[in-house]
Structure formats: C-alpha cells, structure tokens
Write a protein that binds this DNA or RNA. Structure first.
Lengths: 140, 140
DNA sequence: GCTTGACTTAGAGCGCACTCCAACTGTTAA
DNA sequence: TTAACAGTTGGAGTGCGCTCTAAGTCAAGC
C-alpha cells in the first residue's frame, strides 16, 4: 500500500485486486460494464481506487460468490443511481437474492449429506482408507 | 410412468428427465460425453432408463449442483470403470469434493451475513418496508 | 537513450455446461 | 394416409463471466 497520507488512501489496480480478491481483468471489466462508477484517475490516466470503491467491490464480489448474476448486479447498480426512491426496490432485490441464496444453501446441505453417505459407503467397503486418514500405517 | 410390471421399471427419456431433474438435452449430453454408461434401447432405439440409471443420474445431479465440474465427474466415472482397485481413489476424490463443498458453504454463510447486514441497513433506513413484510398496510 | 514494468484501451477469445437445430425414424390416432 | 408426436443423431449455437491480446503510454532506473 503506497499511500502518502493516513487519511486518504488510494490504491492502484494491482493493490485493489489484492484487497478485493478480484483480478485486475475483472476490475476493468466491471468498470466497463458499469458495475463500478467513475474510478478516479491519476495524471497518467491510471485508476486510483479509494476505500469506498474497495468496499463496493468487496460487496460485489460477495454477491457474485453467492450466485447473483452480473445482470442482477447491473440492475442493483441502476437502482442505486436513481436515488432514494429506489431504496425499497433495492431492498426487495436483495431480499429476493437472500431467498435464492438460502434455498441454494439448503440444496447444498442435501448434496453434502448425499456425499457423506457415499463416502461412508466407500470407507466401509475399504477399511484401510479409514486407518490412513487416522494417520496409521498404510498397507497395500 | 408407463411400465408393464411392478418389478422392472423402465423409463423414457422424458420420464427420466422428470424423475432426475435433468433436462432431456442434458441426459443425452451426459451420455454422449460418457458420464452415463450404455443406456438400454427399445426396438426403436429409444433410451430405456432403469432404476439404477435414475439413481446414478440423481447422484450426478447432486454432484453438479454442489459444484463438481463435468471434468471431475468424468474422472470419477473412469475410476468407477476400472474396478475395485480404484475404490480408494474414488473415495479420495469424493473427500476432496466434500472439502471444497464445505469451504464453499462457509463462504456462502459469510455472503449471507453480508447480505443480511445490507438488508437490515435498508430496512432501517426505510421502515415502511418492514411493515409491508409483516403484512401491514402499504403506504406511499 | 533504452529497457523494464505497470498501467491504458478496444476488442477478441475462451471454457464451461448446456441447449438447440436439422433431418430423420417409428408409433399412434383420426 | 396423413398428421401429430416422441424419440433418434451429429453437430452447431448460446450465454455467462471472465480472460487475454495487441498496441500503446508513461515513469523510473541503468
């Protein structure tokens, strides 16, 4: 982090990639498609991200990981731009996403159970694997 | 389900799609790429899935939903084909997938928390939304 | 002055997992 | 017998979300 003051921190695209977990490619891509507004530039036209940008990017990344589509994120951004009147709509969008996320998590729980059952089946049919996992002697 | 006996059930591709949650396209696709072995055919070369096939397809679907790639599923199928010697390898593959799945589920939990916080923030800034959700009168 | 390296842009390319299409076959019902 | 319908095949097309390339700019260090 190469910032001159303690109060205002500005980050290069590389630093921002590290701070947010998004690749530099993705950072430019998100800006291009309008997910991120007007990133400040230095004298050489290089991007300078501030704390707020980092926060927003982190939020976007979380939404992506949790399965929100780029399309939906775009809609959310649009709503954000249209001021306080859209707060309710934004909230509803997030509530819908939450519902999707929760049901997806439920589904994953089912998958995990299926997976555990299958693993248990294999382990039962081949006890040596269990021993290995316990750190015991491996035999063939 | 148009089966003639109670003991041996055979299903058309359409029925199988309904029973497994996979599309007919996907069923053919999975067969083509070798995820599903030798599905029986009737006199007109139409696929006839049996209970075992259904079970296997359901398992595949679960693995896909939980994030296993087609590539990895192919590897698993290959191992299955190479007999009992591969039981350990198969088990390890599933254990690795389980680890991935669990860490993904953790990540989703974090996302959910972030999402809930954001929703709570919006709800706090616009109390009418809360009332609406509680089934109370909607006002503008 | 020259190279290195981190950045810029517009736009092309890619991998994944389907999804669909065209052309065909066979069964059933009117 | 003709139309509708459910299936078949090989192969093309699609949508998503990046990811990379080419060609260029600028600043710093040797």
């Amino acid at each position: 982090m190469t910032n001159s003051t303690n109060t205002i921190s500005r980050f290069s695209i590389q630093e921002t990639a590290e701070l947010t977990g998004l690749s530099v490619h993705t950072l430019r891509y998100y800006e291009k498609i309008g997910l991120v507004p007007h990133i400040a530039r230095d004298a050489n036209k290089r991007r300078l991200y501030d704390e707020q940008d980092i926060g927003w990017l982190r939020f976007l990344r979380r939404m992506r990981i949790s399965g929100m589509s780029i399309q939906t994120m775009k809609r959310f951004v649009q709503l954000t731009r249209s001021g306080d009147d859209s707060i309710q709509a934004r909230c509803e969008l997030l509530q819908e996403h939450r519902a999707n996320l929760i049901s997806h998590m439920e589904e994953l729980k089912t998958c995990l159970t299926v997976l555990e059952d299958k693993i248990a089946f294999y382990e039962a049919s081949f006890p040596l694997i269990r021993d290995q996992q316990d750190g015991k002697v491996k035999e063939k």
